[in-house]
Design a protein around this nucleic acid. Structure first.
Lengths: 136, 136
DNA sequence: TCCGGAAATTAGACAAAGTCCAGATTGCTG
DNA sequence: CAGCAATCTGGACTTTGTCTAATTTCCGGA
């Protein structure tokens, strides 16, 4: 699958998002790379040539994508949030010293023995993060 | 076990930390409560009566405790880091709307099927966070 | 085509968490 | 008591993210 700008409009529409120019650019930045990007990185990518999209729009758009289930939020670094275009079930491997973040397919991972949820609560998600460090 | 200020000096020493007045107060704030606290909360607790400890010291001290393995860092909220006086193996339950964070004993939880670590890497820790939300 | 309103975007002010630094304090140790 | 290293401090600064009021864009109907 190739993620072109043209594809993006359809992808956005299918998630009930009005495909504007800026939203297409931001979606394209995330999906064409298939990488975890911070808001800052998205801004930098989208505005490489000329300044095209404002900070407010980048933040608004990422939050919108999140609400509509187009991307996931990954919280591993205390200083910034990453956005993940992969919404299929998976976990994360975080290399502490380099900051590199990669996926672990959830297919073969099994988590058992979790206690029942507190009353009146529903699980929103289970995040599993494996933190690794370069052997010294 | 009762965590008095007097105990704290020994606890700090046993972790190779010089027990100063400020460090004892900060350790006491965390251990007497056995709760997850943010740097801000620690500051507020330590400075309830008179202002006694500066922001810089609170941050420096928490980082020192972290390095020495006296506390753990819990990253669940994109806006602030929590510090956890419980260093025994356990996971976390995070109530998204209230921000309440509680422990899940690791004893009965089993995680299997994780892929091997990348070459030259060692696991620093595995964080499992169950995010829950009030049923609406 | 023109008009009006709703949705989207924008710049820039603002807020909050955390870092940094240069100077002051503390607490040994001789 | 002097000297020295460790610690602490206020405050300036940085970074991530939010907010707001003003503008721009888009679109449907007359």
């Amino acid at each position: 699958m190739h993620y072109t700008r043209d594809n993006m409009a359809g992808l956005l529409r299918s998630h009930d998002i009005n495909p504007t120019h800026q939203r297409i650019e931001i979606a394209h930045a995330l999906f064409s790379r298939q990488e975890h990007l911070s808001a800052d990185q998205v801004m930098a990518i989208v505005n490489t040539r000329h300044s095209e999209t404002s900070k407010a729009t980048v933040y608004n758009t990422l939050k919108l994508f999140l609400e509509k289930g187009l991307v996931r939020e990954v919280i591993v670094d205390p200083s910034k949030v990453f956005f993940d275009p992969n919404t299929s079930p998976h976990h994360h491997l975080y290399e502490v010293d380099s900051g590199k973040l990669s996926d672990i397919d959830a297919e073969h991972v099994r988590i058992s023995g979790l206690p029942p949820m507190p009353d009146g609560m529903v699980t929103e998600g289970i995040d599993l993060i494996v933190r690794v460090r370069r052997k010294s």
